[in-house]
């Protein structure tokens, strides 16, 4: 019991000072990550940020230039096979034996993970919605089906930790929704810890409890999604008859620059008290304010902000 408790408390995945250089190019730069048991962890970054390279290092496919990865308490560099025992993973576009059927592939890879019952195999195929094609050769699968098969084969051995690299890549909108629902379920219903990479903000936002943002191989920010959003206020949007004039008025009276304006609205960064004051000013000057709304901050806003900051920092570094 005590042992169980201990392992439960331990983070599922730790990356410490993880770096990978390809020649002089640094694809991953001193990355620190911590994923706790039960989290659905989003690993967010634009294309070429180093997500796949990081995941390859986590799984021991690629040896880090520096740093350590610990999966379920085991150092991957030292005990790769033990570390991967309870891990289900999919890296980049999942590749399968095209001359075998989907089911044969899932079964085969499950055997490599120590085996899965026929029931688990079927269940996994059903979960990702390709059971009806399970006995066709993978050769005949569409890209989206292979993607689903990749998830199925990661799940079939019932792992504790699932690592998925851009799992919704190549899926149709319906498929994207299904897979997202599925991933959400993995955490909530199946008690798995999920680490998933994505370049899609809304995906991470919808699915993940925690997120790390990476750009150019460097970690930008890491934390609970709710917390990250809370730290950043979104602009307040005023629906008014003359948005341009309203913006100019607020700037003149309160010294706040508009975030943006369009035909019907003006958006300005401000706190609650400022919003009330601005409303009074606008109404006092005869503007017709039809709605005041604080738009929920999106991860995208945070993300773009971070990427922009990073670009500025780098530009400064160059000088």
């Amino acid at each position: 019991m005590t042992a169980d408790l201990q392992t439960t408390d331990e983070p599922c995945l730790i990356a410490a000072g993880l770096s990978k250089r390809f020649g002089s190019f640094t694809a991953v730069d001193r990355l620190d990550l911590k994923v706790d048991r039960g989290q659905t962890f989003g690993f967010l970054g634009p294309n070429g940020a180093g997500k796949s390279t990081t995941i390859r290092m986590m799984l021991g496919l690629v040896s880090p230039s520096a740093g350590v990865v610990t999966l379920l308490g085991r150092d991957v560099a030292l005990e790769r096979t033990k570390a991967l025992k309870r891990v289900g993973a999919m890296v980049e576009i999942p590749a399968f034996y095209s001359y075998l059927t989907g089911r044969q592939n899932v079964r085969l890879f499950a055997r490599l993970s120590g085996g899965a019952s026929e029931d688990d195999v079927t269940q996994a195929l059903k979960l990702v919605g390709i059971l009806h094609r399970a006995d066709s050769k993978v050769r005949t699968y569409s890209h989206g089906m292979k993607q689903r098969l990749g998830i199925a084969s990661a799940l079939a051995p019932r792992p504790d930790l699932v690592i998925l690299d851009e799992p919704t890549n190549g899926l149709d909108p319906e498929g994207v929704r299904e897979v997202r629902d599925l991933i959400r379920d993995l955490g909530t219903r199946h008690g798995m810890t999920v680490f998933l990479s994505s370049h899609l903000l809304h995906e991470v936002e919808q699915v993940c409890s925690h997120v790390a943002v990476i750009a150019n191989g460097r970690l930008m920010v890491q934390g609970a999604v709710s917390q990250l959003l809370g730290n950043h206020f979104g602009p307040v949007e005023f629906e008014v008859d003359r948005p341009e004039e309203a913006a100019a008025l607020i700037q003149a009276t309160m010294g706040l620059a508009p975030h943006w304006t369009d035909d019907t609205r003006v958006a300005i960064h401000m706190d609650r008290a400022q919003a009330a004051e601005a409303n009074t000013i606008l109404v006092g000057k005869g503007f017709k304010v039809s709605a005041i709304e604080r738009r929920k901050q999106t991860l995208e806003d945070v993300y773009l902000q971070l990427v922009r900051d990073q670009a500025e920092v780098e530009a400064a570094e160059l000088q």
Binding site: L61, A89, M90, F96
Partner: peptide, 8 residues
């Protein structure tokens, strides 16, 4: 790649 993500 797929094979070596397994404990092999």
């Amino acid at each position: 790649r797929t094979v070596l993500t397994r404990p092999v």
